[in-house]
Design a protein around this nucleic acid. Sequence first.
DNA 1: TATATCATTAGACTACAGTCTAGTCTATGG
DNA 2: CCATAGACTAGACTGTAGTCTAATGATATA
Lengths: 199, 199
Amino acid sequence: MDVTENKTAKGIQTQLHIMNIALDLFKKYGYDKISVDRIVKESNTSKGSFYQHFPSKSSIFMMRFMEMDEHYIHIYEDIEQKYSSAIERLEAFFLAVLRCIEKELGKDLMRVIYSAAVISNEHTFFTNEDRKLYTILRQIITDGKQDESIQNISSTHDFFQSIVQSFMGAIYFWGLQLDNTELEELGRPLIGQIIAGLR
Amino acid sequence: MDVTENKTAKGIQTQLHIMNIALDLFKKYGYDKISVDRIVKESNTSKGSFYQHFPSKSSIFMMRFMEMDEHYIHIYEDIEQKYSSAIERLEAFFLAVLRCIEKELGKDLMRVIYSAAVISNEHTFFTNEDRKLYTILRQIITDGKQDESIQNISSTHDFFQSIVQSFMGAIYFWGLQLDNTELEELGRPLIGQIIAGLR
DNA sequence: TATATCATTAGACTACAGTCTAGTCTATGG
DNA sequence: CCATAGACTAGACTGTAGTCTAATGATATA
């Protein structure tokens, strides 16, 4: 996470230690109730150490969030086997990712990520074209044009961006809700509507 | 904006004065370069006064943002006359709102709003069902079911939420972009795809 | 082994959003 | 005309994210 990626073994260890302690504290007390001073104290490190390994408080969550892309690869592998047409895979994958986000990361984390990413310029992950999630989505769309299950789209690029916007819209909307409505439930009508436009 | 809405004439004057000074400063130097102390200094008021009239720094932008809903009413009145079917009105209105947001508010303001709204619980405007924008959207959908231009939707409620998510997704996505691509341009494929699913 | 380099660590310090308290002004009702 | 309530103002104070500097540790090369 540091600009210089020349970490020593000790450095990596410290980073993971801080991250584990912090995630535990966030889980127990909530992100905004836990200060960096507290994290530093509980992990027996220091401010200097913390900011050596993390560019910001929110980047702890960001790291967890970024890890998830590896997960999405496995999710897609499963889906690839279950569905024969790309259009079915698109819908199933979209919903599976939403389920995964809610289960593995939770609303608190996603709210922090979405709030920080749009304001800080520090988090370029959302706009990184090489992101695994984006690669998978582009793959599905390409496949869909091939097997002709995805039609009526102006361009792969525009359609890809529409899907990304749908993800963001569903997640952002869910982040705003005070009740416990599931993310998947909120996102299902939107992706369904888009899929309907492809046939 | 204060919890107590019993403002005196002097109070309203002070609030508007602070708001004008602050918006000028934000425009000139950027939101994150201007501190509340600076606003207070430049407007010859005080911290106490500031927080009497605004619950937070970001709420200055929030007030501007909330004002826009009045604008949307006028936009819709124009569109109502130009398009005969509800489905056409939906697409035109969606795009007109995006244009209006970019032109009248700009990306900086929207980034602050989107960042603050999802993290703070202070801003309930996004989840306020009585919001003018939402009323207009529900009206269009109801009209669309009436004139049968909007079909194939499971429920008005779900479709309404999908449209709101589309707004949020397009705006959030636009907020992340570092280039100057227009919001309308980014949102057009998404709403187009959704509209395609209605026919 | 000596030395240079660069990662790591500690913690004092800064900047700034937001709170608190004490006091002033203003409108209203007896 | 006084008393009371509560809106308004000033600015000191607090909490906390993030910076800076100086010191220490590890590694690589001569």
